[in-house]
Design a protein around this nucleic acid. Structure first.
Lengths: 215, 215
DNA sequence: GGGTGCGGTGAATCGTGGTTCAGGGGGAAC
DNA sequence: GTTCCCCCTGAACCACGATTCACCGCACCC
């Protein structure tokens, strides 16, 4: 249990290395990042990295395992109190892009480094990735059962479209050096398109989802 | 899209190297691919590669320059005869995912290797990428002018959502080993969501709150 | 005070692989 | 037949960077 529950210097140093790795990977990409550089950024010796991680790959993998699960947990927790599926989707969009806007380095690692090697991707990223897609698909199913979402789109497909759309916005935001508020605007557009796209168009129920926009 | 207009062995060999590079990059990713391996796959000597390309990076860059432009040209050509903007969008989706399904290797290079290094990405991929986004955004503008698409979504945003969605579908299709027809089904879902999402709700739509929702 | 162990260090190692370059061969010109 | 030239070859070079490991020094215990 070297998690943050334990406040000894061991856990501390591991975390520092992880954070440094996120920064360095974000700036240069996995393969162009030097272990020595990460060590320097973390303020430890080169060899110290190998006390906490098996090798450079393990460092990248650990970033995923630590961060993505936390992200899924956060999303699930924040959706818990909300009833309206459309509002849930809006929240998912806000949360994901919010995190991205606030932790640009992490965003860059997840968006770009995620795809460094397809082997790595298949082996480690896919399961985590799937967990996230399942969360989204779950919301869509709910909405379909409640009759507010159209049934001719498989929830899983919608999840992929949603995730891809957000990932794409993130990518363009990251490679162009956009300000955070541009990402917010983009998020609003994405929400409009996707939620209107999935909404059931029943003549009888003009859904009063007058619920305000982004929060 | 054959470069084989020029039938001399020079052009031929360059093309062979490019094709081999696509295969190898697709399988292992850029950084894990060995130049020697590409040479072997192309049936040439290691040194021959350097007669046609400045270095390994240049090889990757050349793949983009050669292939993406061709892809844009193809899309523009195929859209020329179509009037209905919604139909154009549907075609864009079909064409992009069609190419992906048919040239899985190329798809993998464009989807995954595209993001190997953000420096590379910013410098070379972004301009090409933008050209493609502009094509999509142009269709959206047309539709807005014609009154069939909603005006509260900037065309450029829609382009990013569309591209991201397709890219996301491609990614999940590539990392899971899906059959081509699964990609087709996914394409249909994406088309439904995105086109319904952008469509102006005109006649018979009893939605008083329509415009305000998402902003 | 002295011993023990553990977290930490960073220079040296060593395999790797991109790139180079000294040469081979064959076709065309003379 | 000889020469020239172009295209190509692939073994060797050498920089580079992940990983190792011999060595510190501090904290704690006897």
């Amino acid at each position: 249990m070297r998690a943050s529950i334990v406040r000894n210097r061991t856990g501390d140093k591991r975390e520092r290395i992880l954070e440094a790795a996120v920064r360095v990977f974000a700036r240069k990409g996995f393969f162009l990042s030097r272990v020595a550089e990460i060590a320097a950024a973390a303020g430890v010796a080169d060899g110290t990295i190998y006390l906490y991680f098996k090798n450079k790959d393990d460092l990248l993998i650990s970033i995923f395992e630590d961060r993505i699960d936390a992200l899924c947990d956060a999303v699930e927790a924040k959706l818990a109190g909300i009833a309206d599926p459309a509002e849930k989707l809006r929240r998912i969009i806000d949360i994901q892009l919010g995190i991205v806007a606030e932790h640009r380095d992490l965003a860059e690692v997840l968006t770009i480094n995620l795809r460094q090697s397809s082997r790595f991707l298949k082996q480690y990223a896919a399961p985590k990735f799937n967990r996230y897609l399942d969360v989204i698909a779950g919301v869509v199913s709910e909405g379909q059962d409640a009759g507010v979402f159209r049934r001719d789109v498989p929830p899983r497909h919608f999840a992929r479209v949603l995730f891809g759309a957000l990932d794409g916005m993130t990518l363009t935001w990251v490679i162009g050096k956009g300000a955070p508020e541009r990402l917010e605007k983009a998020a609003a557009s994405a929400a409009t398109i996707l939620i209107e796209g999935i909404r059931e168009r029943t003549s009888g129920a003009p859904r009063a989802s007058a619920k305000g926009g982004a929060t």
